[in-house]
């Protein structure tokens, strides 16, 4: 079977490392937000790391990604440098979007990272278009399109799945179902809460996995990507996950109970993967310490880079509103 997960130690450590890098990067973001160095909205991925890491690990450099405003995890998993990410969040011109996008609008041309989209559902049509371009140009690429359960409420979700299906486009639709869109519980928002059935109704192959289990996500994504690359059209992958923190930094969280959050925390993707590795003799305390130390050093350097960054001169304010050329 081609889509079997590699269970060698180095690879498993790599998966863990990616999740820890994301988690700790965002913990630093919280500090910087509290220090009012990061402004605006800040949507944390705390609890959902297995989804982006598991999926993106199965992509190659020629593949493309479309994500949402909750996309730090995707950006880091894709290999966008923490320094350029942090500088973006601090609004510096050394940031990946020169401080014009901020936390919600990370773009990176080199790694085919097509945003960072803060309109719920707004990225799905784009992903269809990127995949269409790849298909028409004869590139055997896959576009992974991440979106939340809330996006399923939007018309753009349905239009996009249908279009991808009738044109058999190479899109992996990844639904990060964390059970809430802001305060709206899935079962209050959707008449049919089995989201895979919606994809199936467009004749798109659908799978649903425990999004807290990185191995399960990785395996399901690997299978789907292989199918898509073999020319079998779009796939839909629902990852059942949970967001441990508020929707964006702070909210009253009156839409869910403390107990519910605590129950999910115990199932968190990092603790769970760590204990599984430990139980199987694949991870020592030293390994964790080393991963954390390395991540912290990387984050520290990123913060230093961002702090040392410079504000773009205001004279440049209107630059890129109208492009003078298509970037090569």
């Amino acid at each position: 079977m081609t889509d079997k997960v590699r269970l060698d130690r180095a690879y498993l450590h790599h998966l863990l490392r990616q999740m820890i890098r994301i988690r700790r990067f965002e913990a630093k973001c919280v500090e910087l937000y509290q220090a009012q160095k990061i402004l605006g909205f800040l949507h944390l991925y705390d609890g959902e790391e297995a989804v982006s890491v598991g999926v993106i690990e199965t992509l190659g450099p020629g593949d493309a990604i479309v994500a949402t405003y909750r996309e730090h995890g995707q950006a880091i998993a894709r290999g966008i440098g923490m320094d350029r990410l942090m500088a973006e969040m601090l609004g510096k011109q050394e940031g990946c979007c020169r401080g014009r996008g901020g936390s919600m609008h990370i773009f990176d041309r080199k790694s085919r990272f097509y945003g960072g989209n803060a309109i719920v559902g707004g990225g799905l049509p784009l992903a269809v278009g990127v995949a269409l371009a790849d298909k028409m140009a004869g590139r055997n690429s896959v576009t992974a399109c991440f979106f939340g359960d809330g996006a399923v409420d939007e018309g753009e979700f349905h239009e996009s799945l249908n279009l991808a299906a009738i044109w058999q486009l190479p899109v992996l639709f990844v639904c990060e179902n964390n059970l809430y869109s802001m305060g709206m519980a899935l079962e209050r928002a959707e008449a049919e809460t089995d989201l895979g059935r919606k994809a199936s109704s467009y004749r798109i192959a659908a799978a649903s996995v425990d999004g807290m289990d990185i191995i399960a996500v990785e395996a399901a994504a690997r299978h789907a990507v292989a199918q898509i690359r073999a020319g079998n059209g779009p796939h839909f992958l629902e990852c059942r996950t949970y967001r441990f923190r508020a929707h964006s930094m702070y909210d009253a969280q009156q839409y869910r109970t403390r107990e519910e959050v605590e129950t999910w925390r115990k199932k968190g993707p990092i603790v769970r993967f760590q204990s599984w590795l430990r139980d199987n003799g694949l991870l020592q305390d030293d390994d964790i310490r080393q991963i954390e130390t390395e991540a912290d050093a990387e984050i520290g350097a990123a913060v230093a880079f961002a702090e040392a960054g410079t504000p773009e001169p205001v004279e440049e304010l209107e630059r890129f509103v109208m492009m003078t050329e298509v970037p090569a």
Binding site: Y114, L124, P125, L126, V130, A133, M136, E159
Partner: peptide, 14 residues
Amino acid sequence: SAYVGAGIGAAMAG
């Protein structure tokens, strides 16, 4: 929405 958006995505992708 989908086909205009697909036009945008395709334009971004070359």
